[in-house]
Design a binder for these strands. Sequence first.
RNA 1: GCGCCCGUAGCUCAGUUGGAUAGAGCGUCUGGCUACGAACCAGAAGGUCGGGUGUUCGAGUCACCCCGGGCGCACCA
Length: 645
Amino acid sequence: MFHLLEQRIQETFQKHIATRYALDVPIVIEQPKQPDFGELALPVAFHLAKQLKQAPRKIAAELVADIGAIDGIAALEVAGNGYINVRFDRARYGQALLDPPPEMKTPSSEKIIVEHTNINPNKAAHIGHLRNATLGDTFVRMLRGLGKSVEVQNYIDNTGVQVADVVVGFQHIRPMPLEQVEVVAEQPRFDYYCWDLYADVSAHYEKDPTALQLRRDALHSIERGVGGTSRLAEIISNAIVKAHLNTMLRLGVKYDVLPRESEILRLHFWDAAFALLQERGAVVHETQGKNDGCWVMRAAAFSEGSEDDKVIVRSNGTVTYVGKDIAYQLWKFGLLGKDFFYRKLDYNKYEVWVTTNRPPDPKSQIPSFGRATRVYNVIDVRQSYLQDVVVAGLRALGFNQQADQSVHFSYEMVALSPRCAAELGIEVPGEDRNRPVEVSGRKGFGVKADDLIDKLISKALDEVASRHAEASAEEQRSIATQIAIGALRYFLLKFTRSSVIAFDFQEALSFEGETGPYVQYAAVRARNISRKLEQKGERVPDFRAELNAAAFGHQLQSEDFWQLLLAASKADRALERAVTAGEPAHVAKYAFQVAQAFNNFYHLYPIIHEQNREKKVFLLWMTDFFRSQLERTLDVLGIEVPAYM
RNA sequence: GCGCCCGUAGCUCAGUUGGAUAGAGCGUCUGGCUACGAACCAGAAGGUCGGGUGUUCGAGUCACCCCGGGCGCACCA
C-alpha cells in the first residue's frame, strides 16, 4: 500500500512537471528525516531550481498550489528550503490496508535464471558456501515474491581438478578398491571424509610437486569419461552432490536443475560455442608470442586497462574453464542451439532434475529448462574478471541484449575471525594474528556447514528446553531447529554483499538483538495474542464488519499507532527496493525494523485487556497486520515461524 | 604496475540512486517481569564519517590526490 501511494505521487508529479514546465526530471522520493514531517518527502524543487533559475522554496509552493488533489493524500506541505512533504489520509490508508484493492498482475514472458551454490563436489560444504546459497536462495524468494518466474540452477563441476584430487586421494594417499569406495560413499559424513582426504592430497602435492602428474592423469581420464578412474570420480561426485543437497535442504534451499560439466563435455556444448566464436571472430588463433598456438579473446573486449589477452583454447587444444562457462551462459539464454537431456535425480527429499547425455524415454514428461531472458550468477567477487570475460564473449557474438541481462551477483568472502581461527586450532604466524583468516578447502581451514548448524541447534535446544520443559524432546528439537536456521540465515543475510564477513561463533550463535530469532519471536508473540484471546473464550473479531473509515480515523489520530502502522505497511516497498538494489540485506533490515516496531507496540499496549471495544478491535487488527507482514517477510528470508519460543 | 572493493561509535555493521539535527545491534552503565512469557522493553554515555583538495545552494554519498586494509589481473577452476 505504501508503495502504491509512492508510485502515485511519483507519477502525478512527473506528469504535472512535464506539462507545466516541459521538463523531465527524476522524481526522487525520500523518507522525511523526522516522522512529524509527514510520510514522504520530495526534494524535486531543488532539482528544478537549477533549470528554472528560481528559488526552490518558490517552486515548491507553486507545485503544491497547482498540482491539485491526489487520491489518498491528505496534504502537501512546503518545508525547509523547498522540500515538499506529503501527508497520507490516515483513515483511508488504514481502510485500504484492511481491504486491499485487487492487485493488477501483469503477466510477463520474463524468465529469470538464478545460478547459485556451485560447490565443487569433492568435500563437505563450509560457511563460505552457505553465504552463497543463502544469498542466492533469498534472492530467488525475493524475485518470486514479486511474482517473477524463476528457475534455480546449481552447477556441478564433476569433471574438474578438485574432484580429480580426491580421486588421487583414493588411489594413492589412502588407496581403496573401487568397490570399497562405493560402500564408503554411502556412509553418512562421506563429505567429511573427503574434506580431510582433500586436504591430505593438497599437502602431499606441496611436499612432492611431482605428484601433480597424478592429478593431470586423473583429470584426463575423467574428461574422457571411460575406465575405473572416471567411474571413481562419478561415485565421489554423485555422493557429495547428495550430501550438499541435504545440507542445503536443512536451510530450506532447493534447486530445480543441476547442470553438470560432464554433459557440457559429452554433448559437445563447447564445440557449438567454439564454432560460433570463430565464425564471428570473437576468438583469434595466435601464431606467435607467449600465447602461440592458443585461441584467445582480445583483452580490449573485456578490460580497459589490461593488455593480457585471455586464453580460451590452450595450445594443446583443450578448452579452459571460461570457454566452458561461455557455452553454459549461451545455453542459459537459449542461444547455443543445443540442449541437455534431463532425468530426475535419484534423490528422495524433493524433485530435482539433473542433466544426462542419454536421450530420455520419449514418453516421459520433462520440464523445459534454460531459455532465460535474464540470468543472475551468484559467484564470489574474486571471479569478477572471469565473469567479465563471459559477458564479453556474449557481446563479441553480437548478443548485446543478453550480455546486458547477465548479472554477476557478486559477494565478498567469509573469513574466520582471529578468535574463531584460534578455536579451530588454525595457527597463524605473528603479524597476521589479528587479521581474519581466509576459508580454504584446500588447506582444510573452515567451519563445516553441518557442524555449524548442529552447534546452533544444540544451543537453541538448551534455550527451548529451559523454557518449555513440558514439551516432548521431538517437539523441542523441531522448534530449536527452526530457531537455529533462522539465526543462521539472518546472520548471513544481514551484511550487505560487499562486506567481508569475519565469521565468529559468538556472533553467529547469538539469538538476541538484530538476529533471526528476534524477528521470529515478534511473529510468535503476534500469533500468541489470538490464541490467548480464544483461550479466554473470545473470538477474533470480523475486522471488516467492525472497523470502518471513521474508526481508523479515530484510532490513527494517535501518532504512535500511525507510525507503527506505517512501519508495518512498508513490506512491499522494502521488497521492491531490495530487488532493485539486488540486496537481500535490505529485506533483513526491514524485517528487523518491523519486529522492533511490533515488540514496542506489544509492550506498550495491553491488547486483550483493552476495555474500549473499538480500540480493542483496532489493536487486534494491528496485531494481525503485524503478524501477516512479519510472516510474509520472514518467508522471503526463508525463515520459519516456530509454534512457540 | 593495472583494475575492483572496503575504511562511519569500544566491537560488528546500516546509511534509500547528492538533501533537513549521521543510525542500529552488541558491549558498558541505569531502570522495568503477579499485564498478551523478559530470546523483550525504556533510558544514558559513546562520532573531526581514514586524511586532504575540489564540484554544488547542499557531500558519509560525486571527482582527484594521498594513507591504511582486502581481492583480482594463469595455457587453475
